[in-house]
Design a protein around this nucleic acid. Structure first.
Length: 276
DNA sequence: AACGATCCCTGTTGGC
DNA sequence: TGCCAACAGGGATCGT
């Protein structure tokens, strides 16, 4: 499922295809895909004839900046992906949104489980939206150990739950939160307030390593949920996954079997021996 | 304020 | 073999 690395790779593809191009057509075929705006017709009117200035990202949100100050926000949810195609390319099932650009290419949003969405905001609305409540991006503006320690001070929730809180750090999802905690040697159930500055430093380094590796290798494509890059390729990062989805397998560091528990109704994978 | 539970949704899977 | 319940999960929202 898409987390920061997959969204970042998507961003790069979208930037290549969209920057300095104008939107010449919009088709919306699933109302639920539009979240903030009143209707698909409103989104269409806000996008039509606009030129794309840049494609940014904050956490797992894609930010397509338009030449009139509006921003098209896209979130992939858990099954969303973009496909960049020529107009005559075959349309995949669950294609809910298509933008045509002035070079004839099409930006298509495909999302079977419809947890993803697209919205167009003006500047004020963007600040009030979920995007405005995000913490610092885990990749672009990482926390420093002292800052993270003070942000965690007094927090009783398990560190795993806090890493998934996008208001604290933006971009981590279930896979990379588990991977970072494993790499840092921190037990997922440890209270946030019990993560000292040394462990916070280890955790920050682990987050960066895990994200860097994942971005390099094209993101994580799980067997059962075919996350594909916008060019249709699968990511290769599964080979670098240490604990996620590996219940019962030997920990690569100590050989102990990986355990799976449920934290905040999210499956959580860890090594009971080298994570404390 | 912080935390946890619930809901949304559908393709896949596992149990009987 | 076939059916159906359970499961997966990001983020919004709500109750405690």
């Amino acid at each position: 499922m898409p987390e920061l690395p997959e969204v970042e790779i998507t961003r790069r593809h979208l930037a290549d295809a969209m920057v300095d191009r104008a939107v010449t057509g919009v088709r919306i075929s699933h109302p639920r895909t539009i979240r903030h705006n009143a209707s698909g017709a409103e989104v269409k009117s806000l996008l039509l004839d606009r030129r794309v200035e840049e494609v940014g990202r904050h956490g797992k949100f894609l930010l397509v900046r338009l030449d009139d100050g509006h921003t098209m926000v896209a979130h992939l949810g858990m099954s969303g992906r973009f496909s960049i195609q020529t107009r005559d390319g075959e349309q995949a099932p669950h294609t809910h949104f298509v933008a045509t650009l002035d070079d004839g290419s099409e930006i298509r949003f495909i999302d079977p489980r419809t947890f993803g969405f697209i919205a167009v905001y003006d500047e004020d609305e963007l600040v009030d939206s979920g995007v405005g409540r995000l913490g610092p991006d885990a990749w672009l503006s990482p926390l420093d150990p002292a800052g993270l320690t003070s942000a965690l001070a007094g927090r009783t929730a398990p560190i795993k739950a806090l890493l998934l809180d996008q208001g604290l750090v933006a971009g981590l999802g279930n896979i990379y939160a588990d991977e970072a905690l494993h790499k840092a040697g921190i037990h997922p159930l440890r209270r946030g307030g019990d993560v000292g500055e040394e462990d916070a430093g280890r955790l920050i380094r682990a987050i960066r390593e895990v994200l860097a590796r994942a971005i390099e290798s094209g993101g994580t494509t799980l067997d059962d949920l075919a996350y594909l890059l916008p060019d249709g390729q699968a990511g290769e990062n599964l080979a670098h996954i240490g604990v996620y989805g590996r219940e019962g397998e030997a920990c690569a560091r100590c050989g102990e079997p990986i355990e799976r528990i449920v934290v905040r109704s999210r499956s959580t994978h860890f090594c009971p021996k080298c994570q404390t």
